[in-house]
Simulated assay, not measured.
Amino acid sequence: MRVVLLGPPGAGKGTQAQIIARKLSAPAISTGDIFRANVSGQTDLGRQAKVYMDAGDLVPDEITVAMVSDRLAEPDAVDGFLLDGFPRTIAQAEQLQTSLSGLGQALDRVLELVVDEEELVRRLSDRRMLVDGEWVQRGDDEPGTVRHRLEVYREQTSPLSGFYGGIGLLSRIDAIGEIDEVTERAMTALGKGGAAEGASSADPTAG
């Protein structure tokens, strides 16, 4: 299957991406991984992207989409993939549709992890990282910063829900609960319901 996974910071997207992809026997593909591979590999696209990144500017959509398209054309993704973190805007979604069409492919389903904003703030604000042997809160996980990140998500990425809903690809998944419960809901939405083996009930705040 060819799947896009949407969800705000703190919805557990990174965790679910890995589990669902494993169950589908498909690669979990994130834009972060794609950028790192292109920049470190000094590909033409990577060199172009690095110019913008070094200047602190956003990488233009055409470069990002080209990188994603190249990754989706690799042998391990021919029969299916799970995209995590892309597309982020309707413009990127439209370009992705065009790129997939050029590969003779199309998306099967878009899963949106849905979590109440107050729960997202609680999850992210509760996260800690180990610094010099002491657990401290990350600067970008302070409540005020978290709410700003969620506002940016709503403005830029949540319109994708309407876009994909309008073309009949969207399934909204309740992402409250244990990890395996959320996974089972997602697999059911993909028509592959059943016991969510291989999942754990660890902290669901990744992604």
Rank of each mutant, 00 (worst) to 15 (best):
G104P: 13
W135N: 15
L72G: 02
I34Y: 01
P60C: 07
E118L: 05
S69F: 02
D108K: 10
E118Y: 07
K50I: 12
D116P: 08
E117T: 13
R138Q: 05
D126N: 14
V115F: 02
M67H: 10
E119Y: 03
R36V: 04
D116E: 04
D76M: 05
I90G: 00
A91N: 08
Q48K: 15
L120H: 15
R36G: 04
R109M: 02
G133C: 06
M129K: 08
V39M: 07
P75N: 03
T98D: 12
V68Q: 03
V51D: 13
E112R: 10
A55H: 07
R123P: 04
D132Y: 11
V115G: 00
A37P: 04
D84Y: 01
D61K: 09
V51F: 12
D44T: 11
L72H: 02
P75G: 03
P87H: 04
L72Q: 02
V131C: 08
E62Y: 06
G139K: 14
Q48G: 03
P75K: 03
A73C: 14
V51S: 14
E134A: 13
R109D: 00
S99E: 04
T43R: 10
S99I: 01
V131E: 02
D61L: 06
T64G: 00
G80I: 12
L120S: 15
Q92S: 14
A77K: 01
R138I: 00
D76Y: 04
Q137H: 11
A106W: 07
D132P: 09
L96D: 11
D79S: 13
G56C: 14
L111F: 11
P75M: 05
V68A: 06
G102C: 08
R36P: 02
D61I: 09
R122I: 09
G80C: 14
